[in-house]
Protein backbone atom coordinates (compact mmCIF):
# COMPACT_ATOMS: atom_id res chain seq x y z
CA UNK A 1 0.00 0.00 0.00
CA UNK A 2 2.62 2.52 -1.08
CA UNK A 3 -0.15 4.54 -2.77
CA UNK A 4 -0.51 6.64 0.38
CA UNK A 5 3.18 7.59 0.13
CA UNK A 6 2.62 8.51 -3.51
CA UNK A 7 -0.42 10.63 -2.55
CA UNK A 8 1.59 12.46 0.09
CA UNK A 9 4.20 13.21 -2.54
CA UNK A 10 1.49 14.55 -4.88
CA UNK A 11 0.12 16.79 -2.14
CA UNK A 12 3.59 18.14 -1.32
CA UNK A 13 4.22 19.06 -4.95
CA UNK A 14 0.78 20.58 -5.46
CA UNK A 15 1.07 22.64 -2.26
CA UNK A 16 4.39 24.04 -3.50
CA UNK A 17 2.92 24.92 -6.90
CA UNK A 18 -0.11 26.58 -5.30
CA UNK A 19 2.15 28.65 -3.05
CA UNK A 20 4.31 29.71 -6.01
CA UNK A 21 1.19 31.04 -7.74
CA UNK A 22 -0.35 32.58 -4.61
CA UNK A 23 -3.34 30.29 -4.95
CA UNK A 24 -5.24 29.18 -1.87
CA UNK A 25 -7.36 26.45 -3.36
CA UNK A 26 -6.46 23.52 -5.57
CA UNK A 27 -9.48 22.49 -7.65
CA UNK A 28 -8.21 19.75 -9.90
CA UNK A 29 -5.15 17.52 -10.08
CA UNK A 30 -4.49 15.60 -13.29
CA UNK A 31 -2.04 12.73 -13.14
CA UNK A 32 -0.79 10.14 -15.63
CA UNK A 33 -0.25 6.53 -14.63
CA UNK A 34 1.02 3.65 -16.72
CA UNK A 35 0.42 0.03 -15.66
CA UNK A 36 4.18 -0.51 -15.25
CA UNK A 37 4.56 2.28 -12.71
CA UNK A 38 3.58 -0.12 -9.94
CA UNK A 39 0.87 2.24 -8.69
CA UNK A 40 -2.74 1.13 -8.64
CA UNK A 41 -5.07 3.97 -9.74
CA UNK A 42 -8.03 2.82 -7.62
CA UNK A 43 -5.92 2.55 -4.48
CA UNK A 44 -4.47 5.97 -5.22
CA UNK A 45 -7.99 7.41 -5.40
CA UNK A 46 -8.97 5.89 -2.08
CA UNK A 47 -5.76 7.04 -0.37
CA UNK A 48 -6.05 10.58 -1.72
CA UNK A 49 -8.55 11.99 0.84
CA UNK A 50 -6.29 10.82 3.69
CA UNK A 51 -3.30 12.67 2.27
CA UNK A 52 -5.19 15.81 1.21
CA UNK A 53 -7.17 16.39 4.43
CA UNK A 54 -6.52 19.82 5.95
CA UNK A 55 -4.45 21.00 2.99
CA UNK A 56 -5.13 23.45 0.15
CA UNK A 57 -6.03 20.38 -1.91
CA UNK A 58 -8.65 19.05 0.52
CA UNK A 59 -11.47 19.71 -1.97
CA UNK A 60 -9.46 18.88 -5.08
CA UNK A 61 -10.68 16.36 -7.61
CA UNK A 62 -8.03 13.81 -8.61
CA UNK A 63 -8.28 12.95 -12.30
CA UNK A 64 -6.26 9.92 -13.38
CA UNK A 65 -5.28 9.46 -16.99
CA UNK A 66 -4.36 5.78 -17.52
CA UNK A 67 -1.86 5.31 -20.29
CA UNK A 68 -1.43 2.16 -22.40
CA UNK A 69 1.76 0.12 -22.68
CA UNK A 70 3.49 0.58 -26.01
CA UNK A 71 6.73 -1.10 -27.06
CA UNK A 72 9.07 -0.73 -29.99
CA UNK A 73 10.53 -3.98 -31.35
CA UNK A 74 14.33 -3.94 -31.50
CA UNK A 75 14.19 -6.49 -34.33
CA UNK A 76 11.35 -5.59 -36.72
CA UNK A 77 10.92 -1.97 -35.53
CA UNK A 78 7.15 -2.38 -35.23
CA UNK A 79 5.31 -0.46 -32.54
CA UNK A 80 2.62 -2.35 -30.66
CA UNK A 81 0.37 -2.16 -27.63
CA UNK A 82 1.03 -4.93 -25.13
CA UNK A 83 -0.07 -6.22 -21.75
CA UNK A 84 1.74 -5.70 -18.47
CA UNK A 85 3.23 -9.19 -18.16
CA UNK A 86 4.05 -9.70 -21.86
CA UNK A 87 6.12 -6.86 -23.25
CA UNK A 88 6.99 -8.82 -26.40
CA UNK A 89 6.54 -7.46 -29.92
CA UNK A 90 2.91 -7.80 -31.05
CA UNK A 91 4.03 -8.32 -34.65
CA UNK A 92 7.03 -10.68 -34.70
CA UNK A 93 6.89 -11.94 -31.10
CA UNK A 94 10.49 -11.06 -30.25
CA UNK A 95 11.03 -10.28 -26.55
CA UNK A 96 13.76 -7.74 -27.15
CA UNK A 97 11.69 -4.57 -27.13
CA UNK A 98 12.02 -1.05 -25.83
CA UNK A 99 9.26 0.51 -23.77
CA UNK A 100 7.79 3.65 -25.38
CA UNK A 101 5.18 4.34 -22.73
CA UNK A 102 3.43 2.60 -19.88
CA UNK A 103 5.63 3.31 -16.84
CA UNK A 104 4.51 6.91 -16.36
CA UNK A 105 3.89 8.25 -12.88
CA UNK A 106 3.47 11.93 -13.59
CA UNK A 107 1.78 15.00 -12.22
CA UNK A 108 0.34 16.40 -15.45
CA UNK A 109 -1.57 19.54 -14.58
CA UNK A 110 -3.16 21.39 -11.70
CA UNK A 111 -6.04 23.86 -11.74
CA UNK A 112 -5.85 26.53 -9.04
CA UNK A 113 -8.20 29.20 -7.74
CA UNK A 114 -6.90 32.36 -6.15
CA UNK A 115 -9.00 33.51 -3.23
CA UNK A 116 -8.32 36.62 -1.31
Amino acid sequence: MHELAVCQSIIDQVKRIAAEHQARVVEKIYIQIGPLSGVEPDLLKSAFPMASANTAAAQAVLIINRLPIRVLCNTCQAESETSVSRLVCGVCGNWQTTLLSGDELLLERVVLRSEH
Binding site: V6, S9, I10, D12, Q13, I17, H21, A23, E27, I31, V39, L105, L106, L107, E108, R109, V110, V111, L112, R113, S114
Partner: peptide, 19 residues
Protein backbone atom coordinates in the same frame (compact mmCIF):
# COMPACT_ATOMS: atom_id res chain seq x y z
CA UNK B 1 -6.46 30.19 -17.97
CA UNK B 2 -9.57 28.03 -17.95
CA UNK B 3 -12.72 29.62 -19.47
CA UNK B 4 -13.90 30.67 -16.00
CA UNK B 5 -10.61 32.38 -15.22
CA UNK B 6 -8.93 29.75 -13.10
CA UNK B 7 -5.25 29.09 -13.39
CA UNK B 8 -4.22 25.82 -15.06
CA UNK B 9 -0.58 24.84 -14.77
CA UNK B 10 0.97 22.06 -16.81
CA UNK B 11 3.57 20.40 -14.59
CA UNK B 12 4.71 17.03 -16.01
CA UNK B 13 6.82 16.19 -12.98
CA UNK B 14 7.34 12.71 -11.62
CA UNK B 15 4.91 12.02 -8.80
CA UNK B 16 7.84 10.90 -6.71
CA UNK B 17 10.10 13.82 -7.55
CA UNK B 18 10.93 14.49 -3.88
CA UNK B 19 12.10 10.90 -3.48
Amino acid sequence: RTPDGKLAITVLQGLLSEN
